[in-house]
Amino acid sequence: MTSPLQKKIKIHGPSVVTANRTSDGVVIWRTADHGWSTDLDDAAIVRDGETARALLTEATADDVGAVGPYIAPVTIADNGTVLPGNLREQIRNTGVTIELPAQV
């Protein structure tokens, strides 16, 4: 099977690299200073295929810290806030869209 890193990477607008933290599965984003953050606002934004590949490559290299990194679309609001680019990523960012049973 071809690794995602060996495929040509096409992105259609601003994107980030996201994964789940190995120790507890929490959603994380790759930052510009080669680390991870649990805050989407801290994510490194990439805008072309080559930069996206580079960010994904370094994220994938951190196999101990993160599971399953991939490129996800984002949009940038007028005030600069980074927003998830689709519903799946929105739910990963802000959590389930329902009230948790224990809170009812």
Partner: peptide, 17 residues
């Protein structure tokens, strides 16, 4: 590790294991 955790019912979902 993946196949080992799956043999013990552990999946990775959107927000957590």
């Amino acid at each position: 590790f993946k196949s080992l955790r799956l043999m013990n019912g552990v999946y990775l979902q959107l927000h957590a294991y």
